[in-house]
Design a protein around this nucleic acid. Structure first.
Length: 510
RNA sequence: GGCCCGUUCGUCUAGGGGUUAGGACAUCAGAUUUUCAUUCUGGUAACAGGGGUUCGAUUCCCCUACGGGCUACCA
């Protein structure tokens, strides 16, 4: 495949949605695979919905996910600026070109007039209520009004928009890379607003103009854009750019876990999983949403998970590094149907990638939790704990959650174990064991086991009946990582001390 | 309502005119393990329905149903 020029073009109206990350990822993979260019364009043509901080958030999120931008906002490039608000003048020129060619027109209708039109059409039972070839001549626009009247309105600075004069007949055939040929009747497409009354272009115009100017070869975007694709194709044609028109690929949507509708922040909140890559504080409400990063998801896990949501390699491989994805990704293996979002699978990926980290990285997770709790811990101890916990964690914070007891002696003991197993024999064995351990300066897990076996043999107890009470005495819990290694990490003094406390606290059942 | 898109295990999906319809997550069972977890082994589980076409359809065509998207001077 020839080097592509693809773009991710979010609007800064809030945090970047996880579905947007997938769209960006697919664009990125294709760019890397073909030795092409990944462009980031900010579509900030809606001044009303502009949210401060959103652009930086998008940049930060993409960087975290490992989706590198070659050209665009934050990077620069030959087609700068890449922020549509800074390209404002450009769009008006093309709109003017369309007007002069008779393909667009001024419309002066007020909001109330537009509402009235829709009401009227609804009540007459029209199939649809659009501003288009059927209705445009009965509205207040430069097609229906006398030229003098139009000139007067313009001269008096009456607010206006520029609308595309959609052909009344014919059809648009679109060859979507994912869906194949899709046909739309021109009569079904309305006269979309191209330039808003505030002088800003709408998405439709800006997107076509910029894709053309930036020489975009493939438009890879969500399926929600498919209905407006015929409008875009028409725009390319009327602007005389049909030969430079990019190829389109409309991605299946990410659906709610129950399959009913697009995945939304609401669903994520309700079901308890993140929807944004990073923490996001809504500047209006002040509400903070926890991101994938802060939940403890690793970027490689998120990327792997997202890549497989709607795409598959056609082999039975499930685990892919970003580099492998770059190698094997292809648009024609993208599914057509929407994919439900299954956070359990994301967790499985996370567990996998977390466990694949080297010891010192895992130890680092523990260390940062410890620091937050103002606990000091030597590196080698943290590494030892990380090693023994490695097979048991899904998120970095689990090292702390599951390893707390290394730093805090138990304050209570698992009542089940106590009630069922803490006999006077057990207590006697543990006390004898304590006496064996106490004088030692170091304790290896093999020594710990050997001493335990010795004591058990001497007091005619089975090791099996001692182990769980021993664990409970040391950790408070009924289950956990390898006990002997746990004892080794704790060291003889701490073990003896905890045993003494337990022996003192727990009353034998018989 | 109109237009467009879609439909294989619970979920993500492979496959494709004749297959024991494959894998992964989840789930269940067994083994290993001092516990739990891990790991290993095994199991349950799917072609939305109806018509065609065909010797044969889950696969191709049509219809229906269901689901989704769009229907703003939002993207």
């Amino acid at each position: 495949m020839k080097p592509v020029r693809v773009r991710f073009a979010p609007s800064p109206t809030g945090a970047l949605h996880i579905g947007g990350v997938r769209t960006a990822l697919y664009n990125y993979l294709l760019a890397r695979q073909t030795g092409g260019t990944m462009i980031l364009r900010i579509e900030d043509t809606d001044q009303e919905r502009f949210v401060p901080g959103a652009e930086q958030y998008i940049l930060d999120s993409l960087r975290w996910a490992g989706i590198e931008i070659d050209e665009g906002v934050g990077v620069g490039g030959p087609h700068a600026p890449y922020r549509q608000s800074e390209r404002k003048e450009l769009y008006g020129r093309y709109a003017q070109q369309l007007i002069e060619a008779g393909h667009a027109y001024y419309a002066f209708d007020t909001e109330a007039e537009l509402d009235a039109m829709r009401e009227r059409l609804k009540s007459t039972g029209a199939a649809n209520q659009q501003y288009g070839s059927q209705t445009r001549m009965s509205m207040r626009n430069s097609l229906a009004l006398a030229p003098e009247e139009v000139n007067r309105l313009l001269r008096e600075n009456t607010p206006y928009v520029i609308r595309l004069k959609m052909p009344a007949e014919g059809e648009v055939k679109l060859n979507d890379l994912i869906r194949g040929e899709v046909v739309f009747q021109n009569a079904q497409v309305d006269d979309k607003v191209l330039m808003k009354s505030d002088g800003m272009p709408t998405y439709h115009l800006a997107n076509v103009v910029d894709d053309y100017l930036m020489k975009i070869s493939h438009v890879i975007r969500g399926e929600e854009w498919l209905p407006s694709a015929p409008l875009h194709v028409t725009l390319y044609r009327l602007l005389g750019w049909q030969n430079e028109m990019p190829q389109f690929a409309h991605l299946p949507l990410l659906l709610k876990p129950d399959g009913h509708g697009k995945l939304s922040k609401r669903d994520a909140d309700q079901l308890g999983f993140p929807i944004f890559p990073l923490n996001w504080k809504d500047p209006k409400s002040g509400e903070i949403s926890r991101g994938y990063r802060e939940w403890g998801y690793l970027p490689e896990a998120v990327i792997n998970f997202l890549a497989l949501l709607g795409w598959n390699p056609g082999t039975e491989q499930e685990l892919f590094s970003k580099e492998e994805l770059v190698q094997v990704f292809s648009l024609n293996r993208i599914n057509k149907a929407g994919a439900r979002f299954d956070i359990q699978k994301a967790q499985w990926f996370n567990q996998h990638y977390l466990r694949a980290q080297p010891d010192d990285v895992l130890a680092g997770y523990l260390l940062s939790s410890l620091k937050a709790h103002q606990i000091n811990c030597p590196q080698d101890k943290a590494v030892a704990i990380a090693k023994v916990l490695r097979e048991r964690v899904t998120f970095p914070a689990d090292f702390w959650e599951q390893g707390k007891f290394f730093f805090y002696p138990p304050t209570e003991y698992d009542p089940q174990v106590v009630a069922k197993k803490w006999t006077s024999t057990v207590a006697a064995v543990l006390d004898a064991y304590r006496q064996e351990i106490e004088p030692l300066t170091t304790l290896t897990h093999t020594d710990a086991k050997q001493k335990l076996d010795e004591v058990c043999a001497r007091l005619q107890a089975k090791t099996g009946q001692i182990l769980q009470p021993l664990r409970t005495a040391i950790t408070g819990g009924a289950s956990g990582p390898d006990l002997m290694v746990t004892l080794e990490i704790l060291g003889p003094k701490e073990v003896a001390h905890r045993l003494a406390t337990a022996l003192h606290t727990i009353k034998p059942i018989a």
